[in-house]
């Protein structure tokens, strides 16, 4: 009997049944509050579902999600490339390591708003403003992780490489890269989440596409239910990328453990 209840419990956990139950309670409360305060303040769950169905049908969901993802990929991609260069510099030179550390400390302490304002001044009302903001915000996150990874390479393994006269390139490929990879993936995972959140904020200013733009626009035309719909889209995109990309990569990296 205890075996069968144990199995039932594990099935329940796998289907996230407790979470679904909690969700039902929240949806119930949401419906009640919506009825009490009106659709402008809090649209009903049904209105949100209907809105989602509509933007999927019209294809609007792809236009704006695509526009946002494009900016994220360019800005975040540039951040990863720059972070890799910083990690390499930190690996090759002690001097560069100090400079990189200080630069990251400064970048880490800079607010999103600073970059939004500066990027509008520099790039005007264009695609480049959210791209640049995304770059500057995700760079320190990804780079800090890579530099930490580079610094945590096991010296004893590098010494083994020296004993067997591996070239610098061989040591880099066989020892440094594999031991830094988990740090890079962890940094990219956090960085991508941040990129989505930040680029959407930057889209409020000066562009005419993207999830951030359309959310703000929906607010202006008093279509509150669409604000909720686009928030939902954002959450779904984040969870999907996490599951499909980062979980798969992490699992592949952990193969030898």
């Amino acid at each position: 009997m205890s075996a069968s209840t144990g199995r039932a419990r594990s099935w329940a956990a796998r289907l996230h049944l407790p979470t679904l139950a909690a969700l039902l309670v929240v949806l119930g409360a949401w419906a009640v509050l919506s009825w009490r305060y009106g659709a402008y303040v809090l649209p009903s769950p049904l209105a949100v579902v209907a809105g989602l169905g509509e933007i999927v049908r019209t294809g609007e969901v792809w236009t704006h999600t695509g526009a946002s993802l494009y900016r994220i990929l360019v800005g975040f991609g540039a951040a990863v490339a720059l972070a890799l260069a910083m990690g390499l510099a930190a690996f090759l030179s002690r001097l560069a390591r100090g400079v990189v550390h200080d630069a990251l400390a400064v970048l880490n302490s800079t607010s999103v708003f600073v970059w939004i304002v500066i990027s509008i001044i520099w790039f005007g009302l264009s695609n480049w403003a959210p791209i640049f903001t995304t770059l500057m915000i995700t760079l320190p996150v990804v780079a800090s992780n890579i530099v930490e990874g580079v610094e945590n390479v096991d010296r004893r393994l590098l010494e083994m490489g020296d004993v067997y006269r591996l070239s610098g390139h061989q040591k880099f490929a066989a020892i440094v890269v594999p031991s830094t990879l988990p740090y890079l993936v962890a940094g990219m995972k956090i960085g991508f989440g941040l990129a989505l959140k930040v680029s959407v904020v930057a889209e409020i200013f000066g562009v005419t596409s993207g999830i951030g733009y359309i959310m703000n626009y929906s607010r202006e035309i008093l279509a509150t239910q669409m604000v909720f719909v686009w928030a939902l889209v954002m959450i779904l995109v984040m969870m999907l990328v996490d599951k499909l990309v980062f979980d798969a990569v992490s699992r592949r990296l952990a193969r030898w453990r």
Binding site: L166, S167, Q170, A174, I175, P178, S179, W256, R257
Partner: peptide, 17 residues
């Protein structure tokens, strides 16, 4: 040994130089 390489890859690595 390098944990991300198989035993064979570990031995083969030092033969590269």
């Amino acid at each position: 040994l390098l944990p991300w390489m198989t035993l064979e890859q570990n031995v083969a690595l030092v033969l590269r130089p």
